[in-house]
């Protein structure tokens, strides 16, 4: 009486594992489909998500070729052509590395625009708040320079309201806190301090306007007096115009164009770009492609262990190569579905 399924145990094991992997990926892909449908017309398009369909199509092609090369490796193993099998496995390995490189390039593009779950502003108000936060970080980093190098000494260096006046005193000719700073060095610090104080004041201006939610054009400075003046000019029932994202964007561009602190601002503050459903998109994107990339790495380890045998690769490794091939085909299958869903259906 014939018992069980007529395949070797390792192959059955791999297929059962692939069954669970199918459930694993359909959980994420199915959820993405549902969430994408709920977003409807408001779901971000390629301009907002920086999805590069060329990179996706090339990656699809790379994985298809690698699927072909791994099945040729298995055919070579069954025909006992072990040298051929090794070269097909090497080709698969190299294609896997190419896939990960292209994926890395795509991820780099996302990071450059701060497209990360939780980082994306979804409304203009959130975008303004984000610019304010990032500019504050730039200002704090610049000002920490003076306390770190003992140019200025204050009890609480985090309290900018105390630090900046002290820095102004130094900048206008006061002595440095540390005695080891010579006259030339101090002159360089003073020049730098002038631009950092200016940047601080620019940030403070934006911050005050953001807190009061008043347009930058309506109230020209952060002083209370100009705010009161603008309000006194209002008629009954009128309100001061609100801060708009367009204004903040222009303000930021001016800061980035400045000769002294422009580079620091450009490096530290991202272009404000609100994207409705942006964080949901980023979360789905990185989860699906991230898990897929991890599976590609695991596939590479499987091939690596076979390739490590070198000339010792023999019939004992037939099951291993077949099962690695099955795993790799599954990885290809997932990408075959990820590509249209992420790159084309957006």
């Amino acid at each position: 009486m014939k018992m069980g399924i007529p395949i070797p145990n390792p192959k059955l094991g791999m297929w059962l594992f692939l069954g669970t992997e199918i459930m694993f990926f359909t959980a994420f892909i199915g959820t993405y489909i549902v969430v994408r449908i709920s977003g409807g017309a408001d779901w971000p398009g390629p301009a907002d998500t920086h999805i590069d369909i060329t990179a996706g199509a090339v990656n699809t092609f790379v994985l298809i070729v690698s699927s072909f090369s791994v099945v040729m490796a298995h055919a070579a193993m069954t025909d006992k052509r072990y040298a051929d099998a090794r070269s097909w496995l090497w080709r698969t390995m190299i294609l896997a590395i190419v896939f990960l490189c292209i994926k890395g390039y795509e991820y780099q593009g996302k990071f450059a625009h701060d497209i990360l779950p939780g980082h994306i502003p979804e409304t203009p108000v959130q975008a303004i708040a984000k610019v304010d936060r990032e500019l504050e970080d730039v200002v704090r980093n610049r000002l920490a320079y003076y306390t770190d190098y003992e140019v200025v000494s204050v009890e609480q260096p985090d309290d900018l309201a105390v630090l900046v006046p002290q820095l102004q005193v130094f900048q206008q000719g006061g002595d440095a806190a540390s005695e080891s700073i010579g006259a030339d060095e101090a002159a360089e610090y003073r020049e730098r301090a002038a631009s950092d104080i200016a940047l601080y004041q620019k940030w403070k201006n934006l911050n005050e306007h953001k807190i009061a939610n008043v347009s930058l054009a309506a109230v020209q400075s952060a002083e209370i007096s100009s705010y009161r003046e603008a309000r006194s000019a209002l008629k009954e029932g009128e309100k001061l115009p609100e801060l708009t994202l367009g204004e903040v964007s222009t303000y930021l561009e001016e800061l980035k164009a400045d000769e002294t602190y422009g580079d620091a601002v450009t490096a530290g503050v991202f272009e404000p770009h609100p994207v409705l459903y942006g964080n949901l998109f980023a979360s789905c994107y990185f989860l699906m492609t991230g898990f897929h990339a991890i599976h590609v790495l695991v596939g590479m380890i499987l091939f690596g262990m076979a390739l490590q045998q070198g000339a010792r690769l023999n019939e004992k490794w037939l099951d291993w190569v077949e099962n690695s091939g099955l795993y790799w085909h599954f990885v290809d299958l997932v990408w075959i579905f990820l590509f249209p869903l992420l790159y084309i259906a957006s």
Partner: peptide
């Protein structure tokens, strides 16, 4: 979604 349309139109134009 409520505040989005008006503000984003202004931002995009600007």
């Amino acid at each position: 979604k409520g505040a989005w349309a008006a503000e984003m139109a202004e931002y995009r134009a600007h």
